[in-house]
Amino acid sequence: MNIIVCIKQVPETTDVRINPETNTLIRDGVKSIINPFDMYAIEAGVRLKEKMGGKVIVITMGPPQAEAALREAISMGCDEAVLVSDRAFAGSDTWATSYTLSCAIRKAAKEFGGYDVVICGKQASDGDTAQVGPGISTHLDIPQVTYVKKIEEVKDNTVKVERMTEEGYDVISAPLPVLFTVVKEINEPRIPSLKGMMRAKSAKIAVWTAKDIDADPKDLGLSGSPTNVVRIFTPAHRTGGQMITGETGEIVAKVAGLLKEVITG
């Protein structure tokens, strides 16, 4: 069974702050990490491989520095790694990003002998859209199950999974090939083994450009992106309000008074 995992390198969010004077994101010295949800995607892919045999191919689209994310994925048990990188991808929205990744997946299928499952994280912590996963499955014309919290079993070319819903979960069976986006509940990502880390250090990482993945230039980057960001600003920052002080009895009386309208209105 060949499994493709898509990961994105993101700034470690704890550190993403706005400099109030310059109004810019402070990214200097901010560590880049693998998008937290993609750690679960990697782990889900590696576990599937351990059960079913086959290979895990990890793919990221990003700048050359994103190689570090791929090496970390290898240290956790991924077998092949591909960096899809080209200036032509700059400014991609989710339409163009999912198109680019779908082209890369098609090429990966040729190189590594097909694919059965594509796994993405639920959403990225920076762009936050949760649109790239379903975008990829649509471009590839394969079925999708989003928000997967459990992979129950793989049998006779179908996979049974649980998809999280607002009220609980759905049990869904999907034919292969299929794309999943996964949530945190699905597993506990492993700590890389020493052997894994050794392998990651020396592993060869394929680098593919727009030409390599046979993508139509008009569908890439800015020109392939229907959405345009026209303005970026800091939200009106919530400032601390009023402190309520006094004896417990006074406090609750004041609070009840202040909140009554909010609660009943």
């Binding site: 929205d93 989710t94 339409w95 999912s98 198109y99 762009g127 936050d128 859209t129 949760a130 649109q131 996963g133 379903p134 975008g135 499955s137 649509t138 471009h139 999708q144 989003t146 928000y147 999280m164 819903t165 607002e166 992106s225 229907p226 959405t227």
Partner: peptide
Amino acid sequence: ATIIGRSLMSRVAITVDCGLTAD
């Protein structure tokens, strides 16, 4: 921007070749 809305609209937007702004 619910679980259903995000899963559905992402598929629709790609097919009808339109942008989709999230959340």
